[in-house]
Design a protein around this nucleic acid. Structure first.
Lengths: 115, 115
DNA sequence: ATCGTTCATCGCAAATATACGATAGATAAG
DNA sequence: CTTATCTATCGTATATTTGCGATGAACGAT
């Protein structure tokens, strides 16, 4: 099962895992890069940049939108997507916090201190 | 399908997505925190800290080991796990690079520049 | 009103991920 | 050697993810 006693985890752990899940596919990483590099709302060219069908890309965009990393606005027949800078910053901070805690606290490795 | 034309993505994108995948479950985030907080190789107590069966925890540990975020050494009847500090640092750097690129390059949001 | 463009969604298939009980292997203790 | 402990792995069930074709909705252009 994908969930069982998840209530045993903290909201922070669950939230960070969710963001990580959104980043856990090369296509979604690439989408973020594309959106960022175009430096402006993109209304469709994303599909052309990926080796995936339009329906699939749409799903990846939906997933990124679900976790809030990007924003999308319908604009006539097109849809305008762009980076949600605030959410990116928060994700950045959260990952930084996690990694910092891990690196800071663990000073003894297996090799040097195998009980 | 989980993969199709993945060769269209760069090794960096694939690798970072893989690390993210390893972090995409609350249990694995928690495992990293536990390993870090105990500050020394842990040989079993991890299961007690999680609302999951031993077999399941073992699988999560395997996944973290697969991407290199932790190291494990068999030690008698027990197995000693600990953080792989180097891999954590590299993951930290990679995420930082990604987020920095995204934040830096995208200065115009939908609201301010809708085409 | 009709056509073409753009994108989301549905429905389906295949692949993965998640979870757990049962079992096996390795070793320490007796 | 036998037993107890610890952990990896196997087998299985279920859920989720990924991918794509087909379809539909929205809109601009004609």
């Amino acid at each position: 099962m994908a969930k069982a006693k998840a209530e045993e985890f903290t909201p922070e752990e669950i939230n960070l895992a969710d963001i990580a899940k959104a980043l856990s596919h090369p296509a979604r990483i690439k989408i973020l890069k594309i959106l960022a590099s175009l430096n402006i709302c993109v209304c469709g060219k994303i599909v052309d940049e990926l080796p995936l069908a339009q329906a699939t890309v749409s799903q990846h965009l939906k997933e990124l939108k679900r976790v809030g990393l990007i924003k999308g606005e319908i604009e006539g027949p097109k849809t305008c997507y762009c980076i949600n800078t605030g959410a990116i910053k928060k994700a950045y901070d959260d990952f930084q916090k996690l990694f910092n805690n891990i690196s800071k606290e663990c000073k003894i490795s297996c090799k040097t201190a195998t009980k």
